[in-house]
Design a protein around this nucleic acid. Structure first.
Lengths: 141, 141
DNA sequence: CTGCCTGCAAACTCTTTGCACGAAT
DNA sequence: ATTCGTGCAAAGAGTTTGCAGGCAG
């Protein structure tokens, strides 16, 4: 791990383990809780200093849905950047959906400006009809 | 303007005029400056209280590109919600591009979850090759 | 040992809000 | 006269940073 001059500390290990144990989106504050359950010496500052390292290494993906706080998700192997987020307005859950057409779309849209696309995000806010009627959210990816 | 119990104040007029005079994206802070040039009694609080009124009335469109601050743009007539934002990573400019197929994509992605799409956003980050080579950004919508 | 890493707390940015005054209807 | 709108300043949420000490290498 010293490849890039990064040191292996107990705090970083706890944060890494906590992050990779998650199967759903989490916030910085939640990650702090999870990491402290492993090593209670982890501080908020270290979490905030470690998150950029992990996202820049493509270990985590950062998801900003415009709610003030950022969400993170472990980057599964094989998960590309061709992913759309569907946010359910009824249960506030974030679903990640494969969107293979997005690459083409980003290209087509960028070409009009003579630009080269780097990243692209499709974000859909949606309602769950079943939830509104029955009070239960049947489909949870 | 009293249709909805809203009062016509000099501050609101200044903010409205300042907003509609813009042809590019602006922030709340910039709008404060512009409005104060018209009526220097306008306060930051009033700008922040007026912006939600204008976006909910569809007079302005709110654009969040995940940089911490929100951007706003006067809603031109005929501009639909089928619009994608292309952010140039070199000049930080935000381009609004018509994206007529977005509705279909939102549907297709939501259907996998049995959800009904409400709003959708496509955001592309891109590089300007010409800017990186020549130092000038030739294409500006 | 050296220098990166850490916790703490303060600082920062953007936005929201409580309060008493002021102005539109 | 009534009620809504306003400025001010403080509060708030989420995130970043300066500093002195600590630990990996």
């Amino acid at each position: 791990m010293t490849q890039k001059g990064l040191r292996v500390t107990n705090q970083r290990l706890a944060i890494f383990d906590a992050a990779f144990a998650q199967r759903e989106h989490f916030t910085a504050e939640q990650l702090l809780d999870y990491a402290r359950a492993i090593d209670d010496s982890v501080s908020r500052a270290t979490v905030y200093r470690t998150l950029p390292i992990m996202t820049e290494s493509n270990l985590l993906r950062e998801v900003d849905i415009g709610t003030g706080e950022k969400f993170y998700l472990p980057n599964q192997e094989g998960s590309s950047n061709q992913v759309a987020q569907v946010i359910c307005l009824d249960c506030d859950k974030i679903f990640e959906i494969s969107a293979p057409f997005m690459g083409w779309y980003g290209n087509s849209v960028s070409q009009k400006l003579n630009l080269t696309p780097v990243t692209q995000r499709l974000q859909v806010s949606a309602r769950c009809d079943q939830w509104r009627q029955t009070g239960t959210c049947p489909r949870r990816s």
